[in-house]
Write a protein that binds this DNA or RNA. Structure first.
Length: 646
RNA sequence: GCUACUGUGGCUCAAUGGUAGAGCAGCUCAUUCGUAAUGAGCAGGUUGUCAGUUCGAUUCUGACCAGUAGCUCCA
């Protein structure tokens, strides 16, 4: 007999009982819903026998681990279907991801969207057959032999990686399909119910662009058809917030073939919002002790050679001129760092000058690869709230904290704070060509950053190989409507470039020392931030940011004079306000203002003109009744002054 | 850059190997109206660009340009 603790309750079972049987003993509902089990914290198949006292948990689809196994099993079913249709397929990896699963497969031809329904149909057959999924283990040489027989070259590579560890290699078999896999899995293909393949794309083997490009199939599955429908509807809903559609519709930006890729035109609405953001950021930074610089958009190649950009970032730069022919070659700046360093170098510095904080609303140019551009999120020319801070080692932590506090202040003001996550971006010691500096320097800089992050209780994930070429970064990440993550804000520690540029300060002991440099942005680059704001608010930005805050709607032509008085009064109070004097019905004017997400519509009819009131309609709450103009003015002023998120 | 897909008037979309239609937007006229679309009329396109196949291409093929998703890269 074994003693099994289930949610704190201890029960006795025959030794050898499986997790599935325990689930059944609790209830058929749980048995049917069970995906995997957890024995003493380790996630296992439901068929796993229990031979010693332990703690057991039954995990259903509702549990993240249950979901993972459910989706991972669906990936295997998809692989089996692909193998039926393409017998020569070689399989790479097929994990569960945040929303569903994918499998990377080497095929003799590229897949097209027409293939998806065929594969889906084959999957449904496999699910209907309800094939048992069984685990077995082999020694590494036997595992090799099995995969060699199946011509699974990618699996052989994976086996070779594990072989060194001396562990047995586990496989999962379902009918005619066997996959190298750590598991765990559901016990049968029939457990999977509603399936949908969502995309056919491609991905490099091992994520390296030097390797072969494999076909990647994405899909998702659920225990109920209704859940699948709900999920797909949610995805469609999210796409309606896409800034690349909404931003164009609402007149924020456009693009033009003649100007080129990644070079959006900010239309009046977009330009206005960015102006408001920039003024806000520059003022806030001034309050926090930052000094504004304005540095050139381009420089001779010599500057970039000194900074290391010429060696490490040249592919990303727009170079003007030909090194072979021209005596002087220039490049548009991809970063502001070396320019602001020259401001520091303008005179000799003492420790009394530090910390020295330079900010700049800085336009940058990066020659991104053609497939990478996306709306306003990824472009070739953008303007960033840039800043470089020179400080002593003793000041580093508090200054880093100051930069982070500023970034958090910005995120909270914009209402994005709840949506971000933190990534500690470190170097990859196995790829030294990407970085300058010594291992000691990297360990030191990363050690300092880790200490600061822990000290400040920042919950972060580690990103190996995500560092800048000169130092580690704290990246503040955010997801767009498609779930794709991008960096919104970054704060970096650099102890290398000061030395390269000969930046020094005279310390209290009279000795010359190199300052630490913090590279940082406070609100990110304005184009990207605007894009994420549009998606966050589905175009209905907080009122203080809206290009048009109030629209006055006179009911008929004879009220234009009265409407104009209201407009003048609001304009005098600093509001961005227009008047819709078109000869249209009020319903029509409201509809347009509503679609343009104008925060307030003020309807002026005979009654209002007579009583000196306005009939207020908010984009959010609809008709909120009439009130004296001054009352509305006070309400609107308050909303803007507090930068309210409505 | 790589894989797949897409490109028709300002926008959303239809149609076809024999040189294109609808709705919305625009303009004109009428209507002066109370909380998400008043009616009528007019105008607007060498079907992304350049080649090729063909008696004939916007439709088929290729290259290029641009867009979308993913990969790589990255703020």
């Amino acid at each position: 007999m074994v003693k099994v603790s289930l949610k704190g309750e201890v029960k006795e079972f025959e030794s050898g009982i499986t997790v599935a049987e325990i689930a059944k003993s609790i209830g058929m509902g749980l048995y049917k819903a069970a995906c995997v089990g957890k024995i003493d914290g380790k996630v296992v198949d439901l068929r796993t026998p229990i031979t010693a006292d332990c703690e057991v948990e039954i995990l259903t689809f509702e549990h993240p681990e249950g979901k993972k196994a459910y989706w991972h099993t669906t990936a295997h079913i998809m692989a089996q279907a692909v193998k039926h249709l393409f017998p020569n397929a070689a399989f790479a990896i097929g994990p569960a991801v945040e929303n569903g699963f994918y499998y990377d497969i080497d095929l003799d031809r590229s897949l097209t969207p027409e293939d998806l329904p065929k594969i889906e149909a084959e999957m449904k057959k496999i699910i209907k057959e309800n094939i048992p999924i069984e685990r077995f283990e082999l020694a590494s040489d036997e595992a090799r032999a099995l995969m060699e027989k199946e011509h699974q070259i990618y699996k052989l590579e994976l086996i070779d990686e594990h072989a060194g560890k001396g562990e047995k290699i586990s496989f999962y078999q379902q009918g005619d399909y066997t996959d190298l896999c750590a598991g765990p899995h559901l016990i049968s293909t029939g457990c999977v119910k509603a399936v949908k393949l969502t995309a056919n794309t491609a991905a490099y083997w091992r994520g390296d662009s030097k390797n072969k490009m494999l076909q990647r199939l994405y899909g998702i599955s659920f225990p109920k058809a209704s859940e699948l429908e709900e999920y797909l509807a949610k995805v469609e809903e999210a796409k309606k917030r896409d800034h690349n559609v909404l931003g164009r519709q609402l007149g924020y930006f456009t693009t033009c073939d003649l100007i080129g890729q990644g070079l959006p035109i900010l239309l009046p609405n977009g330009a206005r919002v960015i102006q408001i953001l920039q003024r806000f950021v520059e003022d806030e930074e001034q309050k926090r002790g930052w000094q504004l610089t304005k540095t050139p958009y381009m420089a001779k190649s010599d500057l970039y050679k000194l900074s290391g950009h010429w060696d490490h970032y040249k592919d990303g730069m727009f170079v003007l001129g030909d090194e072979e022919k021209d005596s002087e070659v220039f490049a548009l700046r991809p970063m502001t760092c070396p320019f602001q360093y020259q401001a520091y170098l303008n005179k000799n510095r003492s420790y009394r000058d530090l910390p020295l904080r330079y900010n700049e609303t800085s336009t940058l140019f990066r020659n991104e690869a053609s497939g990478e551009m996306h709306g306003l999120i990824r472009v070739r020319q953008f303007t960033i709230s840039e800043g470089h801070l020179m400080c002593t080692p003793e000041q580093l932590e508090s200054e880093f904290q100051g930069c982070l506090e500023l970034a958090i202040f910005m995120l909270k003001t914009l209402g994005l704070y709840e949506d971000v996550s933190y990534r500690f971006s470190m170097w990859d010691p196995n790829d030294r060509t990407k970085y300058i500096g010594t291992e000691e320097q990297w360990n030191e800089a990363q050690g300092i950053m880790r200490k600061i992050l822990n000290h400040l209780n920042i919950p972060f994930v580690e990103g190996i190989g995500e560092a800048a070429f000169y130092g580690p970064k704290l990246d503040i990440q955010i997801k767009n409507v498609f779930g794709k993550e991008d960096t919104l804000i970054t704060i970096q520690i650099d102890q290398m470039l000061a030395e390269k540029f000969g930046m020094e300060y005279v310390d209290a002991d009279g000795k010359k020392k190199n300052p630490y440099i913090i590279h940082r942005t406070s609100i990110g680059c304005y184009e990207r931030t605007l894009a994420l704001l549009i998606e966050k608010y589905a175009g209905a930005l907080p009122m203080w940011l809206m290009p048009e805050q109030i629209r006055v709607l006179p009911i008929s032509e004879r009220l234009h004079t009265d409407a104009d008085k209201v407009v003048k009064k609001l304009q005098a109070a600093g509001f961005r306000v227009t008047c819709d004097t078109r000869n249209e019905k009020i319903g029509y004017k409201i509809r347009e203002a509503q679609l343009q997400k104008i925060p307030y519509m003020l309807i002026i009819g005979d009654k209002e003109a007579q009583e000196n009131t306005v009939s207020v309609r908010s984009r959010k709450d609809g008709d909120i009744g009439s009130m004296p103009i001054d009352a509305f003015l006070a309400k609107a002023t308050e909303q803007v002054a507090t930068k309210a998120i409505d």
